[in-house]
Design a protein around this nucleic acid. Sequence first.
DNA 1: GTATGATCGTTAGCAGGCTAACGATTTGGA
DNA 2: TCCAAATCGTTAGCCTGCTAACGATCATAC
Lengths: 143, 143
Amino acid sequence: MTDVVRLLTRAQKLLRTATDSAMQEHGVRIGQNLVLEVLWDTDGLTPGDLAARLDVATPTVVNTAARMEAAGLLERRRDPDDRRLVRLYLTPKARAAEAPISAARREIAARALAALTPEELTHLENALTKIVTTLGGTRETTR
Amino acid sequence: MTDVVRLLTRAQKLLRTATDSAMQEHGVRIGQNLVLEVLWDTDGLTPGDLAARLDVATPTVVNTAARMEAAGLLERRRDPDDRRLVRLYLTPKARAAEAPISAARREIAARALAALTPEELTHLENALTKIVTTLGGTRETTR
DNA sequence: GTATGATCGTTAGCAGGCTAACGATTTGGA
DNA sequence: TCCAAATCGTTAGCCTGCTAACGATCATAC
């Protein structure tokens, strides 16, 4: 029981480390990458939106966004219609990084799972889904 | 591919959160728990030893140990035979916490995996082992 | 029309992880 | 014997997460 949990933790750490070091070659850290992946799809979200989509606390996004702004990856603009809101817009630099970074991400995933047969992959996905469901991570996509 | 990676990350985060909040009821945080689990088995290790066993950087252990010392969970003593070394010894308070904490840990693992059949559990374990092996986490127990 | 309550983002402070640089000690070789 | 190299733990500084408290803005009820 607890061994499987430990294994899962270990696998995730290896994946995280590999991903982070790959991202660094593109001038980005792993947390910033998460923000990028959402903004590449839909630009102009607020820190609160991003936090909800990434399943992370708002201050985490605020801090990460501050580092990204300093790195010239995004720009924060106050929403003119609701001055409580801040909207985050990607810079051309961040746009240019999309192709190489997402390729690197796919490559790492492929490498990590290379030893698994398609059947094993399906089993793994099902097992992980069960764990997530059990622990209440319903990940409400709606709203 | 990347979805499975995301799922794995998500499952691990849920597990980590659940574990940490359970540990807090016993006055311990999750990182401190890792140190405890090793020292419960073998007391008097050095920060370097612990870091190797936990697969973590030495400064991580040093900082965690400092917090644990402040919390009255352990005591650091200089090794008289080699004054470069620091040895960490658990206090009675840390000993007393062993039974309830490890029970809580087992309970969380059981709950998280409750929806899996024994067969699925085996598949999961195999799949995770393959991932860890592929990514080079050989976890050298020897030495 | 205004006061109250809700909703934002931000700040402060903490835990846990990392690398790099450093000081103290020990070891080994000349 | 003594000096250089190796080996420790520590410190400093960073990134990623969290909660709690706060200030600004908006919406609503009155």
